[in-house]
Amino acid sequence: MKILEVVNAGRTVSRRSFIKGVIAAGATASATSYLFRGPASAFAAPPAHGAVERLMSLNVNGQQRRVDVLPHETLAMTLRYKLGLPGTKLGCDRAECGACTVLLDGTVHYACSILTHQVRGREVLTIEGLEAPDGTLHPVQEAVVDEAGFQCAFCAPGFIMAMVGMLNQNPNPTREEAARALSGNLCRCGDYNKILNSAMRAVEYTQQRV
């Protein structure tokens, strides 16, 4: 088991950098990070920590989106609860499982462990943004279909984004390199064999499309 603090496909994950970001954003770093203050908080008492939502503009899946965001709000929560993009999953909310993996400027990141304020001006790509508007699947998605990857598939959006990120960094990985690049993601069904089959087929499809 080697998932913590791994460097894969250019991603360095650390709880410390997340907490630093929280502090920089002027929010309170809480031990129970799995909390969400929704848009409905207009009905609520004034926020206890003086946290107020600020309107910001985000580039998500090629679109400019305007959204009110709290200082301590994670990107995963903004995507899931404020932008109608629940394809990004939360399995642990603490950088352990990778179900929330998205791309920021083409590089993989855990959306549970980055604040929405930290992605200002960056291009956010989620699972919903992979498919072309005309319904053409991304080569990685096509590869997964052809290899019947995944079982329960709760981890699938994260793995697929990690595969896309891997191919951005290394268009021609070996199976071993693919395993390393995807090692920031967990699949509890243990479908790793089909996931690697999918990754290698994705390499092939990507090269064919170029």
């Binding site: 993009l85 629940p86 699972i127 498919e131 019947a148 995944f150 598939a153 959006p157």
Partner: peptide, 14 residues
């Protein structure tokens, strides 16, 4: 598989 890999599959929290 298609809903699962495009993010359209709805699990309970979705």
């Amino acid at each position: 598989l298609l809903p699962k890999i495009t993010g359209r599959a709805r699990y309970a929290e979705d």
